[in-house]
Each structure stands twice: as structure tokens, then as C-alpha cells.
Simulated assay, not measured.
Amino acid sequence: MKYTVLQTLVRYSVFLFLASWLAACVDEVQLPSRSVESRLVVEGLITNEKPPYTIKLTFTGAYNSLIYGQNEIPVNGALVSITEIGGNTVFLDQDPLTPANYWMRDTAFTGKPGKSYQLKIQLENGVTYVSEPEMLHPVAEIDRIYAEFQERPNDEFFEPDHYVILLDTKDPSTTGNYYRWSGYGYVPRLSTGEPIGMGVCCNWCWVPVYSSRSDVLSDVLVNGNSISRRPVMSSPIYYAGRHYIEVRQYSLTKSAYQFWLNFEEQRKRNGSLFDPLPASIEGNVHREDDASVLALGYFGASAVSIKRTVIPGDTLNAQRIAIKYSNVFIENGNCQLVYSQGQLTPPANW
């Protein structure tokens, strides 16, 4: 069927009318930007290990959901101390190179199980924050850590195989024990390297990998029993070679346990429009003159049990890995430069 010019113009006019009418029926929604004032953020821990201990102090940067500003601003010139309740007080020194970090290096001051500790922060403007006294509870020893190979799913082309690092420990018969685990390690990586004479330099290095800091557990359901095959981290396999792994088991107070639960819940959020603002978890630090004004973050006290292991990696065939991965995980250039914190030698004294 052929349309005349007049019919075409009529149809076009009707289309424009309908489009204009539909547009007029849609109300524009103005979404308000969400913003918060800058707040103090405290991250730190005293343990039963020998010092140094570090406390990180920052202010949240100006933030709203439409304009992204600086995420964190170092706190300069604060007077920071840690007090053992009923005992000594030690002062911390600000790091001149990384000013957000304040260090406690007094080797005579070590956290002791059964003692409570309090952090005090006096800002340059005279405002003072203090933490609630935090009890340093003992922690069970790690019995062993071990690794199991896990192949990547067939459809995950850009993910490597990995080792799952597992832990065994024994919960004491007393109730009210809370745990947090963290782990880190060094894994081998390959790069194209850089030419040197007739050969290639620096195409092999070890890079650090880290676990989540918020893996926690209450003994409510396991009191007095063994905690077996607890996965604590994943060590990715980018190339054949040894993996150097360290796992740390921390004791927690009940309030610290709740803080890390909230932290993990926020970390797993999908980032939708209606999610809470980032870094919005209040902890145990508040203004000295007004306990309702809370800082973000947490000052903790933990006993620590540590285990290390070396995964030989000798069952992995380099040629097979190269065929399986192709060059997906190989970057161009000097290995220690193209991978964050890469080092040309494995960690010493492991």
C-alpha cells in the first residue's frame, strides 16, 4: 500500500501529538543529594604482641552522592595516648610520611590479657575523643592451617584458580568467646619483564594478597567444641610457584564483634541508591564532653594467635597454566612495578 504525502503528514502530526502528550504526563523527579559533615574516623588495635602499635586517624572528606570529594583527610597535630586502666599511659607519635598514622613504640608497654585499654585523642582545636575501655581477652591457639586447591568455574575466564586456606582451632569451654580472622600472603606472578642485554629482567616477582578483615564468629553455637575447616582466605594462583601464607586469630569483645558484623554487612551491599553512606559505622569512640557524638571506626584490644605455612605449588605445571590462562594475568613491564607492592624475592624467614 502506498501513502500519499498528505496521509504521511497526518500520521506524523498524530505521532508528535501523542509523544508530546505522554511527555507532559511524566513528572520530573528531583532526587536530593545525600551529604554528611566531616567526621573523625578511628582505626586501631592494641594486642598482646610486642609494639609498635598504630592508630590511624582521619576525617571523612566532603561527600555527597552526586559529587565525589576526597574520601579521607589525615588528622594532623593530634595528641594521642593509650592508657591501661589502673596502669600506665603512653603517648603516640605522628608519622611524618603518612600523617594519618600515629605510632606507639614503647617496648615496655604491651597489651596483657585481662587488662582494659582506653584510647584518647585531643584534636588541634581542643576537642577530645575517648574510647570506651576495651578488655583484652585471651584467645585460643590455632591448631593448624592448610590449603585445598579449587579450580575456577568454567565461565570465569578472568578469574584464576586458587587455594582455599582453612583453619582448625578449639573453642574453650567458657562461654562468650568471639573471634576475628585475617590473613595475608605472597604469591608468584609473571610479567613480560624488561629487556636487559640479550635477555629479560624482572619478569617474575611475589605480590601480597590479603583476606577480608571482617571474618568473625561467636561461640554461641560451637561453645567448647572444635572449629574445623574454617575458610579464612583465598590465595589466587596466577602462576606456578610457592605461596607464603600467614593467618591471625584475634579475640574480640562482644561490642567489637558487633562492629565487625555491621562492617561486613555494609561491605556486601550492592551500592544501590538507597544504601547507607559509605564508612557510616559508629564504634566505641566518642567526644569526652558529649558521649552522644560518636566517631566512626573502632579502637580494639585483642590477643593474637598466629600460624604460617608455605604451599609448595609443585603440583602445578607452568606450561599447563600458560595454556589455560593464555596471557590474561601477564602484564607488560617490570614485575615489581606493574603489580602493586611486587618484590623480586620471596619473603625472608618464613
Rank of each mutant, 00 (worst) to 15 (best):
N223L: 04
S228Q: 08
Q249Y: 08
S302L: 05
E156W: 14
P52I: 05
L316D: 05
A140I: 01
D171N: 13
Y339C: 02
T253L: 03
E141F: 08
S234Q: 11
C202E: 11
V10N: 00
W181I: 05
S234Y: 10
F15Q: 06
M233E: 00
N223R: 15
V130W: 02
I55C: 06
M233T: 07
L217E: 07
Y12D: 05
G176W: 03
I55P: 01
G111R: 00
V338Q: 03
T107Y: 11
V10T: 08
S228M: 11
L9N: 10
Q94K: 06
P208H: 04
Y129V: 04
T345A: 08
S305Y: 12
T4W: 08
Y53L: 07
I196Q: 12
S212C: 04
V42C: 04
S191K: 02
Y339A: 04
L316M: 11
I330N: 01
W181N: 01
P236I: 09
T169S: 13
A78I: 02
G176T: 01
P346Q: 06
Y3I: 13
C201W: 10
L66C: 15
N64H: 11
L167Y: 02
M198Y: 15
L277R: 10
F109L: 02
S131Q: 05
S235N: 07
R152C: 08
P74L: 09
L252R: 01
T253F: 06
G283V: 03
M1Y: 13
K254N: 08
R105S: 15
I330V: 15
L277C: 06
E84I: 03
C335Y: 01
E331P: 04
N317A: 09
R248E: 14
P346L: 08
G69D: 06
N332P: 02
F274D: 07
S211G: 13
Q70M: 05
V26T: 12
L221P: 00
E288I: 11
Y146H: 02
K170Y: 14
G77A: 09
I165Q: 01
F109E: 02
N262V: 11
E151T: 10
V200L: 12
E72H: 08
P51R: 04
A256I: 05
I281D: 02
D27E: 11
I323R: 15
G224T: 08
A279I: 07
G69F: 04
G224R: 09
E132N: 13
K324M: 14
M104T: 02
S272G: 11
L294A: 14
L45F: 10
G111W: 00
D219K: 02
N64F: 08
L16D: 00
R189Q: 08
D155M: 08
Y186V: 04
F59P: 00
R189T: 03
H137A: 15
I145Y: 00
N284A: 05
Y146G: 00
